[in-house]
């Protein structure tokens, strides 16, 4: 995964709370291999019921939405759908916990801003798109002419900027892991599943 530090693109608003991962990608698409691209599955059912849906009219890099975005199922496919659609950052007051980790693992920024800021942005954007600039390093953004500060976990910020990969990062601790394993199983033999 390659890192990024700035977005210069377009933003749209999705005026809904609790947009869960079942909506982001309905379960029936999840047997598809990734290399076909998941962008077409993003919010599939709402989009296909509504030709004028904002995501049918624009191809934004930034999504503005309400609280608890990405709640529910741990399906990382929800993030693939967003990323393959071209989205690099989602701004919301809060996110589903597992969704946030999945997002960061795929280069997608879950940026937290206040509810009041979201209200104002959604008002401003309405059903149209607007220019968006996001600076991951400084935690600043300008969307539809409004400047704002967002918060993101500093570890995630570094991961996103550098495109760091956890498996590579963990490799350097292999010796500590092996030592820990030995100690744990010696002290707690019951932790090993019994096999006859």
């Amino acid at each position: 995964m390659s890192g990024w530090s700035q977005i210069k693109g377009r933003a749209v608003a999705l005026d809904a709370r609790n947009v869960d991962t079942d909506q982001l990608i309905p379960a029936r698409f999840m047997s598809q291999p990734r290399d076909q691209g998941y962008g077409g599955f993003l919010l599939h059912d709402v989009r296909s019921d509504d030709a004028g849906h904002v995501l049918n009219r624009y191809a934004p890099q930034v999504l503005i939405t309400r609280e608890n975005f990405g709640s529910g199922s741990s399906r990382e496919a929800a993030v693939y759908a967003l990323v393959d659609f071209g989205i690099k950052a989602v701004f919301a007051p809060s996110f589903g916990d597992i969704f946030s980790s999945n997002a960061v693992n795929n280069g997608l920024l879950p940026a937290r801003v206040t509810e009041a800021e979201i209200d104002a942005l959604i008002d401003r954007l309405g059903d149209d798109d607007a220019a968006a600039f996001v600076d991951l390093g400084t935690g600043e953004a300008e969307i539809a002419g409004t400047k704002l500060q967002f918060s993101v976990d500093p570890v995630w910020q570094q991961k996103l900027i550098n495109g760091w990969d956890d498996i590579d990062m963990t490799a350097q601790y292999a010796a500590q892991i092996t030592e820990f394993r030995g100690k744990r199983l010696a002290a707690h033999p019951w932790a090993m599943p019994t096999t006859d």
Binding site: I98, S101, N102, N105, D166, A174, R181
Partner: peptide
């Protein structure tokens, strides 16, 4: 629960 990237990480490193 974890996502697919974490699944891969656990498979690889426990």
């Amino acid at each position: 629960g974890v996502g697919a990237t974490e699944v891969a990480h656990i498979l690889a490193t426990q």
